[in-house]
Amino acid sequence: MRSALPLAVLLVLALLAWYLSFSASRLDRLHHRIEGARSALDAQLVRRAEAAVELAASGALDPASGLLVADAATLALEAGEQAEVVDLTDLGDGRRARSESALSQALQAALDDETVGELRHDPLHAALLDRLVSSSHRVRLARRFLNVAVTDARQVRRKRVVRWARLAGRALEPRTFEMDDDGPAALDRPAG
């Protein structure tokens, strides 16, 4: 009976070591997934801003709307460049999220039903509009993927054993990226 107790203790310690290793590995994979999702979101935000600048510079929009969209897109690109130095989410003041939301709002204001209808009749402008629609859709998807990854990582980090064993190390708590990513309502309607 004496030999069974040390064996049981060794078994419990081995199971605990396996569980801690499994949890640390899972948390590490989630943090890598967050980094990949951040990179993908960054790329899609840049593509959307570039598509908006192209549309504004094409002369397809009236001068006031073109200026509004170009200015918002330029500010979004600048905020993106500055956020690359620190972090995509710009944890300090949220400038990137605000500038991306401002671009969404500028696009909503500039692209009403009538304007979108006119743009769709010109093949060149329709191509620019399609690029903007595609990139806006990809921004929504990339942001959702990032936020899901962050939520998953937060759930794992909240587990008592993860906190007790400090499996997250010194990694900062991941944060979601919150912005207005709604596109103009006129773009959601079918062409024709």
Rank of each mutant, 00 (worst) to 15 (best):
L91F: 04
E81W: 01
T74V: 05
L10R: 04
E78F: 00
Q44G: 01
D90T: 00
W18Q: 07
R26D: 08
A106P: 06
L5G: 02
A165E: 10
D130S: 13
E35T: 08
S134A: 15
L41V: 04
L128H: 09
F145K: 02
F177G: 06
S99D: 10
V86W: 03
L88G: 02
R98E: 14
R33H: 05
A110I: 07
S58W: 09
G92K: 09
A110N: 05
S104P: 01
A97K: 01
A153S: 10
A127W: 00
G80W: 08
G94V: 04
A24L: 02
L124E: 14
V85N: 02
T89A: 13
L129A: 06
L128V: 03
A17R: 03
S136D: 12
V46W: 01
A24G: 13
D42N: 14
A79C: 06
R158Q: 15
L119P: 09
D188A: 15
R47P: 00
R158K: 13
Q82D: 13
A142L: 07
G117T: 14
Q105V: 10
D42V: 00
G117S: 15
A126Q: 14
Q82L: 13
A52M: 09
R154H: 11
Q105A: 12
R38D: 13
P190A: 15
A14F: 10
R140D: 15
A57E: 14
P184Q: 08
S23Q: 15
H121W: 06
D42C: 04
A102G: 04
R170F: 07
L141S: 12
S21G: 15
L103Y: 12
W18I: 08
A37E: 14
E78S: 15
F22A: 11
K159Q: 15
D112M: 02
L45R: 06
A52C: 04
L10P: 00
A24T: 00
V12W: 12
N147Q: 10
V161T: 13
V53H: 12
A83V: 01
A40Y: 12
L103M: 07
E35N: 09
A191M: 03
D112S: 06
R175M: 11
S135C: 06
S39D: 12
T115G: 03
P123Y: 13
S23Y: 01
R138T: 05
D122A: 10
H137I: 06
A57F: 02
L68S: 08
P123W: 12
D113S: 11
L77M: 10
D93V: 02
A191V: 08
E173S: 13
A14Y: 07
F177H: 03
A24I: 00
L77F: 04
L10S: 14
A168N: 06
R98M: 11
W18R: 00
I34P: 01
A149F: 02
R160C: 03
G80C: 10
L61N: 08
E35Q: 11
A97T: 00
V12N: 05
R38K: 14
D152T: 04
R38G: 03
A8N: 09
D28E: 14
P63V: 10
R157W: 09
G117H: 11
A185F: 05
L7D: 02
F22H: 12
G94Y: 06
R95I: 06
W164T: 04
R175I: 03
R96W: 03
A73F: 06
E118V: 01
F22C: 00
G92W: 01
A51C: 04
A127H: 15
A186G: 07
